[in-house]
Design a protein around this nucleic acid. Structure first.
Lengths: 309, 309
DNA sequence: ATATCCGCTGCATAAAATGCAGCGCTCTGA
DNA sequence: TCAGAGCGCTGCATTTTATGCAGCGGATAT
């Protein structure tokens, strides 16, 4: 949009760190760009950049302005999305920040369902740990977040909550297969393959172990949930994950089962958006679909303590 | 601001109802204005006006856009206000929609106090009935509302609430002066001078009367609270008002006293803003001052049933 | 000390917005 | 029924605005 041009240029300067570099990025001359910035500051009433010998940096006023710029842009695209919706067109873009567990089954399926109904809608899916997901919402770089056990919860508006037990993952030939009530201590007798400390599952495990005076020692620690699933096939070890990231039916080699709720109560998988924000139509509708799908799963598996057979 | 020029022009067309009229108002040619509108619609992706044989009217897409325009402008002034604040300057403008009762004493005093501390801040005070005040907030034409017994309360975020009993107003030589507990039925024996039906005090009176199987018949009905106060001096009648609109000490001729809480419990005087909105600094600080002042009054007169002597 | 990178400015030029005149259309009122 | 008024819209000349070019002075890094 033409009237946002100045804002785009300001953002370019912020990114590039200097007018001359930003000028290259924006196919302008440093002189032209410089004068636009100056003209804007004049109009705005205060400088928004600090002039350093090596370039430009936002001053506090500029930081405030950047928030305004971002929110204006998102609001305008929201309006356009709503207009498209009332014109009968169903176009738009949905951006989601999500935990890794959503990547293998849940989100691909849900997005495919949505896109089969509305092919004009595009998606971007970004993997974020639970704190980064919330920052993504606040900076408008994602419309929705679907995360396990978020941390701060300020500026986070919960659209749907779903309890998720922690599941242990092991080979079908593991002795754990025989257990009817899978206590945590059984698992700790095996080699452990654990997600990194930033992850909610790890946090719950650490907590549960500490309560029982045990400590977790990982044979392998990784940031990749996919790695965990594959590794347990090679070494007869135990991994942990939440069921939404696992196949409903165990496959030929791999089994998974909820750790006894007596040991770990499980955490919350939360669907949320930035507090107070009105989402674009496509994002709002998709969020609604996700909420329904999550609710359906809860109904199918109503208890935290469900043992997948 | 330069980049909002197009929006200003769009608003002018909306107001004027035709391009040619709007062109006069904005010191432009119809041709230039026409092309700006067309260029914007092109960029925006959809027409925002209906072309009628007699002029232009917003279509639904345009209505949505207008909301965006208004919120964008308000947000920008908020940012400027915040920047002014962090630069140490205390400038800005506060707009208040309020009930009539605030006009004679409370608001003038509060605004004078604020302006003595911050002479750079200007005010606009608009008298609005309780439903119109809420619409003012929603349309961004007022930052704050200070109203008695608001109606809808959607989009209304309460910043401070204060109970206000209904006071009867009469001459000092009225027989009502002798009553220690001023029951409603004593008042109804006199000629009544009542505020119009839109007002909260009237609503409470009607309700109380109806509960007791009485009906109110007004000798004079008016929209002006000032008129009420002056009229009871001429005819020995009874008027009604909330105490915040009355002098703390009765004056030489006029007396007022709370109607017994057994008959009317009183209503709420609410200070509020539009839900979710971040106010400009000056407005936020002034709202805070108002809240403190209201709280101080509550402390001085803690009970609804207070009888002003 | 020198070379480099920075923001900034005067001046000529390119680009965009505006004004002017006029078209076709619809509705109004004698 | 028919002229007039009002409307949105467009081609073209003109004005206003934005941009490019070249160069200045200052701070920094080597």
């Amino acid at each position: 949009m033409k009237h946002l041009k100045t804002f785009v240029l300001i953002e370019a300067v912020v990114r590039a760190g200097s007018i001359r570099k930003a000028a290259e990025d924006t196919n302008l001359t440093a002189s032209a760009l410089n004068r636009r910035i100056q003209a804007f500051e004049q109009e705005f009433g205060w400088p928004i950049f600090e002039r350093l010998p090596r370039g430009m940096r936002l001053n506090p006023a500029g930081e405030l302005l950047m928030q305004h710029i971002q929110s204006q842009r998102t609001d305008l695209t929201r309006v356009q999305s709503q207009v498209a919706d009332l014109s009968g067109e169903r176009r738009g873009h949905v951006s989601i920040a999500c935990s890794q567990a959503l990547l293998p089954y849940f989100l691909p399926e849900q997005i495919a369902i949505y896109r089969s109904a509305h092919p004009g809608v595009t998606f971007s899916v970004n993997v974020r740990d639970r704190s980064q997901a919330e920052r993504d919402l606040a900076s408008f770089s994602s419309d929705l977040a679907l995360v396990f056990e978020p941390v701060h919860l300020v500026e986070f508006e919960v659209l749907h909550a779903m309890a998720q037990p922690v599941h242990a993952i092991f080979r079908r030939d593991s002795p754990l297969m025989q257990r009817t009530d899978l206590r945590l201590r059984y698992c700790l007798d095996h080699h452990l393959i654990l997600p990194a400390k930033a992850y909610g599952v790890r946090h719950l495990l650490e907590q549960a172990a500490a309560q029982r005076g045990r400590t977790l020692s990982a044979a392998v620690e990784t940031e990749s949930f996919e790695f965990i699933r594959h590794y347990v096939l090679h070494e007869n070890a135990v991994g942990f994950q939440i069921p939404i990231g696992l196949k409903m039916d165990n496959d030929r080699l791999l089994a998974h089962r909820a750790v006894s709720p007596r040991d770990i109560v499980g955490g919350q998988l939360l669907l949320g958006q930035m507090k107070g924000r009105t989402l674009p139509v496509a994002s709002a509708k998709f969020a609604h679909q996700l909420a329904l799908a999550l609710a359906a799963r809860t109904e199918a598996n109503p208890s935290h303590s469900d043992h997948c057979p």
